[in-house]
Design a binder for these strands. Structure first.
Lengths: 141, 141
DNA sequence: ATTTCTGCAAATGCTTTGCATTGCA
DNA sequence: TGCAATGCAAAGCATTTGCAGAAAT
């Protein structure tokens, strides 16, 4: 597990309570929240916290590699503090995002696949996302 | 290749010049345009065309399965008239989207993989997207 | 002391909506 | 003719920006 203070200091980015708090929220949930959800969770403990600060903070955390950003459907970008490769399932009814572990590691960690993509497209690949869209068990009754 | 008039009539959706035109644009390009790009391309031939109509039209085409929607990075949703499974590469510098064919078919058409995802997550999967993020050859000099 | 960050409010950009008019079936 | 689609303008969200005051190094 990465240490946020260390990581920020290394890159000469200031360690602030707001940054610590946003990262703590992401570390402590599996719900892949968007900015609004993070903001709502922080509000009780940090009444002065601004939504704009949350936006700026997730951006910083993303740039230093402490979180990854997910581009699934509606409701804004989602954030995930697990940065090792794994894929996600998105419920088209309730907009929930969950991890889909195990099998997908093979694909997302396959260096040979990245080589093939690079060879075919000429792109220098920096990251990969695998999304499954469907209906979650709770919505499927 | 699917026939748009037939498909729309089957679902009792009216065939209009605007719908034909939007679909024709998508059939005739590999650039995965967003709504604004489609609108700009239509303007010369359809001066009265409204941006809202383009939004509504891509939505209709998506719902009847004539196009697929891509959720890659900035610049709004992208549209693709190729609906057979294939993955995409996105250039983080110029926002270009290109197809990444061949290798990815194995993954995206793998019914066993969907079974595994279903078993692990309980989700009934309806579609899958595989995105590669990186820098395109043109931007990489 | 310097530089960066925060919080606020305003601005921006993409997308949706309401509604009168138009046009397909 | 009847119902659905279009076009326009306004509204709605998510996100970004500019800037003065506050906080971190």
């Amino acid at each position: 597990m990465q240490n946020i203070e260390e990581t920020l200091r290394e890159k000469k980015i200031k360690v602030t309570p707001q940054r610590m708090a946003v990262y703590a929220i992401l570390k402590g949930t599996k719900s892949h929240p968007n900015v609004e959800m993070i903001y709502q969770q922080l509000k009780p403990d940090y009444p002065a916290m601004s939504l704009a600060t949350v936006y700026k903070t997730v951006d910083v955390l993303k740039k230093v590699g402490l979180v990854q950003e997910l581009n699934v459907g509606d409701g804004g970008l989602r954030y995930d503090s697990t940065t090792i490769p794994h894929s996600h399932v998105y419920c088209e009814k309730c907009s929930k995002v969950e991890d889909a572990n195990g099998f997908s590691l093979d694909i997302l960690e396959d260096k040979q696949l990245l080589e093939k993509v690079n060879k075919q497209t000429g792109y220098e690949i920096t990251s990969t996302q695998l999304y499954f869209y469907g209906i979650c068990p709770q919505c499927n009754n």
